[in-house]
Design a protein around this nucleic acid. Structure first.
Length: 425
RNA sequence: GGAGAAGUAGCGAAGAGGCCGUAACGCGCCGCACUCGAAAUGCGGUUGUCCGCAAGGGCACGUGGGUUCGAAUCCCACCUUCUCCGCCA
């Protein structure tokens, strides 16, 4: 959420920023409501002041056994007016709040202009896409041939976009989770969290999934709970409503979670394979930083996620998202895209974003500056480190051999009971 | 799920209709004094937010309502925590 005062005082900046996203929001109603709010506040606060002082007078008169009936009658009237106006103020403030909750973040100045993913800028590449001297198979075929993944039984038990991992496939999924967590904990300084996989509406609002994106998520019936679409939600909200100490910043958390996405509007897209599932696993990276350091921290967070791909020796590239492709809450995002031979393309496997104070304002996460003084909003960042299913897909496709087997990347072997290859048995 | 108790500043806690929310008292933290320095001691400071150029004012005692001229205090609902019982991996 953007700051009300900031929007009010920097209308041009806000409109330029939103324009860069290709988003057109009319602020006319906002300006009107905000003016009315301030006018009303002035009046109602004067009335409240009157009520407070007169009530004190009444107390004194009663003590002196004087008759205060006239004042009491007057105050009855004043109190009714206050009540009515308070109600009106609340209505206006709710409307302003709702409006602001639906306004996306303003892109950072370094975010390139553009309408969609074709306008994203490629920053760097790692590795070379492998040239196959045999027909390369897609991961869903490899997965079924080697009995690692069962798509049909997943669909039978839960529906489309659900799978069973089986045997060494399940083991590989688990190995990837542990490998990534261990890397971030041991080498990159993150503290592990194991979060709730369901959160309430307030938390979903805190990170920006609500109110706009309810249809992308699974709601648990008869409750105020939602299945998390990413560990970002519980992990970012862990400090909601708190004032942290500057000396405790930056805070780095990593967390494994299952992620649940309704994928509404994705009918017919990526219907085969593991790329787009209703439930998938992910290791997430989340940072809480001072306002000054967040962009440096975005660089290191991105490098931390890249490290996973480097150690797995998977070819990838890093792109910076253009304004039109930027997520609702993000000010700047780097996507990591891994090479998938079956698609003959790079596919998103991690998204690393700086939300600046956009989420912190919604979730009310602040820190007290070391020098003392007013609390300030933290900056929050997060990135996948990485999406597990897509990583597994990339391994199957990039490490496949002509005989149908799949070599296991060196770094994963300790997590796979020492085996070096998945083959038909 | 049933019964009971409790939610007040960073923590503990007082407060029972107006003199109590820049919130007693204790701990913690910051500053100063004393000291060669430290400890101990003493003195002072230490919630957030909204409106306003400012002066000043408003709001907040888990959350939301209600009663009242006036609510931390009385009433209702909800949330959370704790204790006991039941159930359960």
């Amino acid at each position: 959420m953007l700051d009300l005062k900031f929007v009010r005082d920097n209308m041009d900046l806000v409109e330029d920023g939103l324009h860069k996203r290709g988003s057109n929001i009319d602020f006319g109603e906002f300006k009107k409501l905000e003016e009315e709010r301030r006018k009303l506040l002035g009046t109602v606060e004067t009335l409240k002041n009157r009520r407070n002082t007169v009530s004190e007078e009444i107390a004194k008169m009663k003590k002196m056994k004087e008759n205060a009936d006239n004042l009491i009658v007057e105050m009855r009237e004043v109190s009714q007016q206050v009540k009515d106006m308070d109600e009106k103020v609340k209505e206006i403030e709710d409307a302003l709040q709702t409006f602001l909750l639906n306004v996306p973040n303003i892109p950072h100045p370094t975010v390139p202009a553009g309408a969609g993913d074709e306008d994203n800028e490629i920053l760097r590449k790692y590795g070379e896409p492998r040239k196959f001297d045999f027909p390369a198979k897609a991961h869903w075929d490899i997965g079924e041939d080697l009995k690692l993944i069962e798509f049909e039984r997943g669909a039978k038990v839960a529906g489309a976009r659900f799978v069973f991992y089986r045997g060494w496939g399940a083991r590989l999924e688990r190995a990837l989770i542990n490998f990534m967590l261990d890397l971030h904990i041991n080498e990159h300084g993150y503290e592990e969290l194991f979060p709730p996989f369901a959160v309430n509406s307030q938390s979903m609002t805190g990170t920006g999934q609500l109110p706009k994106f309810a249809e992308d998520m699974f709601k648990i019936e008869k409750t105020d709970l939602w299945l998390i679409p990413t560990a970002e939600v519980p992990v970012t909200n862990i400090y909601a409503g708190e004032i942290l100490k500057e000396e405790d910043l930056p805070i780095y958390h990593t967390a494994y979670s299952a992620c649940f996405r309704a994928e509404a509007g994705a009918h017919g897209r990526d219907t085969r394979g593991l790329i787009r599932q209703h439930q998938f696993n992910k290791v997430e990276l989340v940072k809480f930083t001072t306002q000054e350091n967040s962009y440096e921290e975005l660089e290191t967070l991105t490098r931390n996620a890249e490290k996973v791909l480097q150690l797995l020796e998977l070819p990838y590239r890093v792109v910076v998202l253009c304004g039109g492709d930027l997520g609702f809450s993000s000010a700047k995002t780097y996507d990591l895209e891994v090479w998938l031979p079956a698609f003959n393309a790079y596919k998103e496997i991690s998204s690393c974003s700086n939300f600046e104070d956009f989420q912190a304002r919604r979730a009310n996460i602040r820190y007290r500056p070391g020098q003392g003084g007013k609390p300030r909003y933290v900056h929050t960042l997060n990135g996948s480190g990485l999406a597990i299913g897509r990583t597994l897909s990339a391994i199957l496709e990039n490490y496949q051999q002509e005989d149908g087997s799949v070599i296991i990347p060196e770094v994963l072997r300790p997590y796979m009971g020492g085996i070096s290859k998945l083959a038909k048995n």
